[in-house]
Simulated scan of single mutants.
Amino acid sequence: MNAVWARANKSKSALGVVCGTGAGALWGLVFLAPELVRDFTPLQLAIGRYLAYGLIAAVLIAPRWRTLVPTIMRKDWIALIWLSLAGNTLYYVLLSTAVQTGGIAMTSLIIGFLPVAVTVIGSRDKGAVSLTNLAPSLVLCTAGAVCIGWQRLAAPVSGQADGQLLGLACAIGALASWTAYAVGNARCLSRLDHVTAHDWNLLTGVITGAQAVLLIPLTLAFEPIRHAAASWAHLAIVSVGVAVAASIFGNAFWNRMSRLLPLTMVGQMILFETLFALLYGFLWERRLPSPMEVAAFGLVVASVMSCIAAHRKQPDAAAVAPA
């Protein structure tokens, strides 16, 4: 009986890792969007992406809306509002602003600590793998994050000191925002057995789309329309593409993974976004990775494998949903 349970649990973990990899591969595409539409501001990019996400989600969930809504309690709607803000709207604006004002190196280095933050929080859950057992994975994760940003961090960055401080503040804010989303979303999914991961993603999309609509007057007031019709059409195409790939399918993979893996392991899966973002960046720039970037790849992969090994040594923890 124990052998059967162990095989089922191992299969569950393997499927969770596959879903986490898929989410990272699709989310990595988000980093190409600013390069494809460089003439638009971070707020405009966020509005375009999440407006498309909201419209698509509304169309997909419409057939089940009347039967699904009565099962969503008031506290669930409140959770959807703050999760949409923390994990989508606020995070994307903060991240884009941090890159523009503080540089890619500093931003990627700080955001690279997302797995550490989520894993440390997840270690407090009942039955979770202890931080002592996760220490090798956390050390490798931290070393990988340092390698990712080190060579550009050492290079001089243009801009005034005030801009650097703003970029640092936005990067830390983005780190806190997405950490809160990852933890909160996993815990909501663990208690909402009557809502599928796909429907939860679509509900998140509807709420995020509504937030994007509310931001339109803000961008019109502070960012006057100065683009040609062709540029807006280009933005629309990129926004729809990112919405479908990253927000619809990527989030669906992530939500499925969040129900299959404990929170301590969920944190490590975020590393795949960084890996694929780097890979797409190399392809976009048509170059090979530097030795430091190769080292980062190896450390990140080793971190994930170490985390998986720690959970296999303590199978009970892998079966416990986040508290």
Rank of each mutant, 00 (worst) to 15 (best):
A174Y: 11
N88D: 12
W178A: 11
L15V: 12
A25I: 13
A98W: 06
V213N: 05
K126V: 08
I81W: 11
A236I: 06
L203K: 04
M73N: 14
I248S: 00
A33Y: 08
G149L: 13
T21I: 12
A310T: 05
Y91R: 07
A318Y: 00
A25Q: 06
W200L: 10
P70H: 01
R124G: 15
L279G: 06
D76I: 13
L36I: 06
G122S: 03
G159M: 06
R286C: 07
P70V: 06
L83C: 05
I61V: 13
S108K: 05
L261E: 00
R287H: 03
M305P: 05
A79N: 11
G163P: 12
W232D: 05
M1I: 15
S177P: 04
G241S: 08
T196L: 01
G298D: 08
A174M: 13
H194N: 14
L140F: 08
A182N: 13
A14D: 08
E35Y: 09
A86P: 04
S177T: 11
Y50W: 09
T196Q: 02
V37R: 03
K10Y: 14
A128L: 00
L278D: 11
I78W: 14
L299A: 01
G24A: 10
S11V: 14
T132Q: 14
L95Y: 13
T208S: 12
S123F: 03
Q160V: 14
L189K: 00
A229Y: 09
S96T: 05
P70C: 09
V4N: 12
K75A: 15
I207W: 07
I111T: 15
S258V: 12
Q160F: 11
V17F: 03
G184M: 04
S247I: 00
A176T: 10
A79L: 12
V242C: 07
G112K: 02
D193Y: 10
A145W: 05
A14K: 03
T274Y: 14
V300K: 06
L43F: 03
L202R: 00
S96N: 07
G173P: 03
C147T: 11
R64G: 02
A174E: 13
P63W: 11
I56Y: 12
A321M: 09
S137G: 07
L68R: 07
Q314L: 11
D193G: 02
G28H: 05
S239L: 02
G20L: 15
G144W: 00
A221Q: 06
F40R: 05
P262C: 00
G87S: 03
A86G: 04
F272K: 10
L15K: 12
V242I: 13
